[in-house]
Amino acid sequence: MNLPAAGYPRLLALGDAAFTVEFGDGIAPETHARVLGFAAALDTLAADGRLPGLVERVPTFRSVTVHFDPDRADSGVLGETLLALAGEGRRAAASGRLWTLPVCFDDDLAPDLADVAARAGLTREAVIALLTATEFSVYMLGFLPGFPYLGGLPAALEMPRLATPRSRVPAGSVAIAGRMCAVYPWHSPGGWRLVGRTGARLFDVTQAARPALLAPGDRVRWQAVGREALGE
């Protein structure tokens, strides 16, 4: 379980100003622990000034994309450095923060909850019980600023995205698709199934040091609240 997947890590060029360092091709806690371990090691090297030209790094489910300034970094040297660092096989040293976030399951704020229950062969209350009993882990942020991909959705709730995406998902919607849970921080088109609404502010541009509430590696629990607690 602690060995990397065969053929990994590997280095892929993403144009002339980025590399993607892959640790696997699937979604798995072990792969993600390596992703976060590598990202932390990169941060340490960069803080020591040993990665000239590094712009930023983006951890995902199974890889880390490293954006660099090709006029300041020698891409050949950088690629070798990244691959050597990835080969050290570091894993995330510690899990991130544990957040307990409020969610309201009122019908009008959870328009797909009844359908999700029917598809899963469960009562509405049983779906809520599953969602609030699960400790989710933040795999990555993407799609929209602050949008978290939360792994750990119980298998009983695994189902595909909506066949026809909504043209407008309300901000704060808590949603599921596949084996993931997520929150839409912004009004947006979207195809995930909406099972609740949170009042937690997942992205706040005035918090310049940490505009996104969640970070990869953090854990999230949902706590059912009444709609008055959403502050709407």
Binding site: L14, E22, I27, S63, T65
Partner: peptide
């Protein structure tokens, strides 16, 4: 389909 990974302008 791939498991989502990083993209950049130009991809």
């Amino acid at each position: 389909d791939i498991v989502s990974d990083g993209v950049t302008p130009g991809a």
